[in-house]
Design a binder for these strands. Structure first.
Lengths: 237, 237
DNA sequence: CGGTAGATTGACCAAGCTCAACTCACGTGG
DNA sequence: CCACGTGAGTTGAGCTTGGTCAATCTACCG
């Protein structure tokens, strides 16, 4: 019954049984991907909508110089490309971090579902607005926060998202992101990320090893990051 | 008769007369704002959709430390908040740069228009996707480009947008952004922006003084910035 | 037991920031 | 018509954050 995508959308709208069935139908046949596989590459013509049901992925772009910038992390329940189908081609790539289970929703199936179930359309719309807020918060971090603030901020963001989708017990979560990936998300080098993580550990705010994150002192982490949860829109209409 | 907003949307869809009339009706009574006036403040409950018909504005957020990060520039024809109405409150502010003429579209008028004119909905949707691509490009710049690349990239982006909406003759445009505003958009200080602009002028790529920008050597500027026009989606389906 | 990917460390370097002064264009009141 | 005020642009000197390069360590795996 259900999956993380459906659970997430249920946080944005009350669905009746026919809507739940429609959502289950379109996500019934996920495909398994290995770790570090590109789901979509920049320049591809837009295909079906992808929905990550299990595992982690990220949107990224590589520059001519070969450096990479990650623009968003996709956690279980997140959709890749609700609407990119309207554009001529992808302007970035998407790659898995871990092994992942990804559902594929064809464009016509998606259009039909949205047309016949407006509440689903609304919920997906809200999900996208939240994603956009996250993009803007990322810009703020990259532009105006120091590296320790950036790292703390990202950790908090991911943690709050994990809590919201039930992937955390409230103080611990799996964080399967190598330091090089964190670096490419935060516009830093992995060397520097490493030093900052040590600083955060020393400060007693977090524990992090072998892919397990433990928020030891949420208040301290929040303080360090200057975090403002508003952009995640916890309070929805 | 139209206005810059309608002109822009016409680039994304072919409208019939009734659609054009609908668009004209909702933008028929713009309001005039002075320079440096907040149109919307963070925390406000979402109001009507705002459409900038003339003048420049930007989205921004100020941090606890008092620094400011600008996340997007709004040029004539750009809409502020197509859908933010679904969320509980604004997660950023919007301020004019120059004097501006801004149309206000009430939520119900907007909903009715979108419902009865699907091509308008599609066009506005595409406009939003392009904006999102611009957000992502901004992230790439802030994360992985050097300061001169960032400045060159922003100038090119604004220039191409100006060309597209007919605000440039192909080599010259008004660029009414003080260096401090450029700095807050690019995550730099105005001192450093100043030095970089001098470097760009010295290199012969641009001329910029008193709010007038002249692209003297587009190829050089493109080369410096590592610009890839793909994200602006010049080729639309 | 070697092999590999990721994490860690140290020494050095440089892009970009801070602070503070100064200039320039422009608008205002006398 | 000119002195003055103001906001933006410009410059210089010194410093800090975070990058570079290269070596080392560690966990895990076939």
């Amino acid at each position: 019954m259900g999956n993380r995508f459906i659970e997430k959308l249920r946080g944005f709208a009350d669905f009746d049984n026919s809507e739940l069935r429609a959502l289950e139908r379109v996500t019934a046949h996920p495909k398994a991907y290995g770790a570090r596989k590109d789901l979509i590459r920049e320049g591809d013509p837009p295909g079906p909508v992808l929905v990550v049901l299990e595992g982690w992925a990220f949107r990224y772009k590589v520059l001519p110089s070969g450096t990479r910038q990650i623009m968003a992390f996709l956690m279980p329940g997140d959709a890749c490309d609700l609407h990119i189908g309207m554009l001529a081609e992808m302007d970035h790539s998407i790659q898995t971090v871990t092994r992942a289970s990804v559902a594929t929703i064809g464009r016509t199936a998606m259009d039909e579902m949205l047309a016949s179930h407006p509440r689903i359309a609304t919920a997906m719309y809200i999900a996208q607005l939240v994603d956009e807020g996250t993009l803007r918060a990322w810009i703020v971090s990259l532009g105006r926060r120091s590296s320790i603030e950036r790292v703390a901020h990202l950790i908090l963001e991911l943690f709050l998202r994990a809590v919201r989708i039930g992937l955390s017990d409230g103080s611990t979560m799996e964080l399967p992101l190598p330091q090089a990936v964190l670096a490419d998300a935060l516009g830093m080098t992995s060397v520097h990320i490493n030093r900052i993580l040590q600083e955060l550990r020393r400060s007693g705010a977090i524990e992090l090893s072998r892919g397990m994150l433990h928020i030891k002192d949420p208040a301290a982490l929040t303080y360090i990051s200057g975090f403002d949860a508003n952009y995640l829109h916890k309070r929805l209409k």
